[in-house]
Simulated scan of single mutants.
Amino acid sequence: MPMIEPHKLILTECHSPTQRRDIDKISDALMRQPSLDSRYAYVTLTELCKHTSGKFKPFCDFLDKIDPRPQAARLRTGLRAEYSKYLTIRDTAPEFLRRDEVALLTPNNLISVNPGQENTVVVFTTMFNNFYFSNFTLAALLVEAGYSAIFLNESTGHFYLNGIPGVADSWVALMRKLTETLQRIPGRVTFTGFSSGGYAALLAATHLRPDHFICFSGNVDLSESSPIRVPKLFTLEKRNQTPAELRIDLSTVIRKAGLKGCAYAGTESERDVEHMRLLSDISGVHTHLLEGEGHLSVRRLLMDGKFIDALRFGSGS
């Protein structure tokens, strides 16, 4: 990404308190540029949207004026609808959750939200420290639906396979830490992850055997012999830095363990569909194709008003 004057800020897609502060300055700076990098501008607009920033509307209006392309206009229309949804969720979130927002935005972290409820969701966030939408949005949705939640945030790009810096220094240590946390949890437990968090949620499920798992557009087979292409951001360098014994075809383990859960994938993401099909003939696992959707299955479910229903169905609650 290009450097933005005068603030000397580099935009990152990883959610953090710093990113939330800086994207407002970046949008202001972009509106003063003599020419605009289109991709950079729309990444900025998307992040402003997901953070429900007050700068979203003026920046979107600015792009309306300078970018008449039909595809760009459709993107802005979709982001406006998302922004409205996120804003409603934020405005109705309880005060105690607002106090947790900085922690939810902090990468490489483990945080419990709304403890003591009958059902708990353990969330493995993406390498961008979100669930596509912000962790705050997801936490607010879960609290409103009556769930407790445990958020695991790991942003090194190693898919949690090396643990979480500052929390657990290996996958084994992370499972030990999570086991200790879950021993204090009453009721049913569901593991969930989206995208890069999906594989970790499934792998953890094979180790700790929760009541259910829910995988949104996640990876199932990261073995060396997998015919499915490796995720672009899970580079060869990153893979070689992780334990090979943890990069496996999880469908075989899930089948043998008799785990229960569900998986979602959009029909327009061939790779996601290939991964999901590995689970499609396993007893106790339900798979769902979202017609016309790409990788962002969680966004589609949220905008259709079906995200919490998917969670309830998948968790058996």
Rank of each mutant, 00 (worst) to 15 (best):
E13S: 14
L161E: 01
L290E: 04
A140S: 14
I10M: 15
H275S: 01
P70F: 01
R32W: 15
I228F: 12
S38W: 14
L75H: 12
F62A: 00
N162F: 02
R90P: 01
S280A: 14
E13V: 15
S155F: 07
H158E: 13
Y160I: 08
A81Q: 13
A257C: 04
V102M: 06
E82K: 09
I23Y: 01
K232P: 05
P94F: 12
L63V: 03
C14I: 11
A263E: 04
T44R: 01
D211T: 07
K55N: 13
S280Y: 03
I248L: 09
A103R: 06
I111W: 10
A257P: 01
T120C: 08
N130G: 11
Q117C: 13
D24S: 14
P34M: 08
V253A: 11
S283Q: 10
V121M: 13
D221R: 09
V172K: 15
L174V: 09
V43W: 06
G78H: 02
T179E: 13
S134R: 03
S170W: 02
V253L: 10
P115Q: 02
V273F: 07
A205S: 15
D28V: 15
G166N: 02
S112L: 07
T125D: 08
E101Y: 10
R184G: 08
M1L: 12
R277M: 11
R39C: 10
E5G: 10
T18C: 03
R229Q: 14
S317H: 14
L97T: 03
V298N: 08
T267I: 06
R271S: 07
M3T: 13
N108G: 05
K65C: 06
F56A: 03
V102Y: 05
V123C: 11
Y147A: 07
T192W: 00
N240D: 09
W171E: 00
A41C: 08
F234Q: 08
L9R: 15
I308Q: 09
L203P: 09
V172P: 06
E118Q: 11
G314C: 11
L202Q: 13
P68L: 04
T77A: 14
F191H: 07
T77I: 12
Y40E: 14
G292A: 04
M276T: 06
G146L: 04
N109Q: 11
S148F: 08
E82G: 01
F133C: 02
S155Y: 05
A73F: 04
V121H: 01
Q241R: 15
S16G: 05
A168V: 02
T52L: 00
G146F: 13
D169C: 12
R247K: 12
H275Q: 11
I10C: 12
R176G: 14
F96D: 15
A149E: 02
D249I: 06
M1W: 03
F128C: 04
I4W: 04
A205V: 10
S226M: 09
A140H: 00
K25R: 15
S155H: 01
A257V: 03
R21C: 10
D249V: 08
I214G: 08
L141I: 08
L278A: 03
G218Q: 03
G218S: 04
P165S: 11
Y42R: 05
P186M: 05
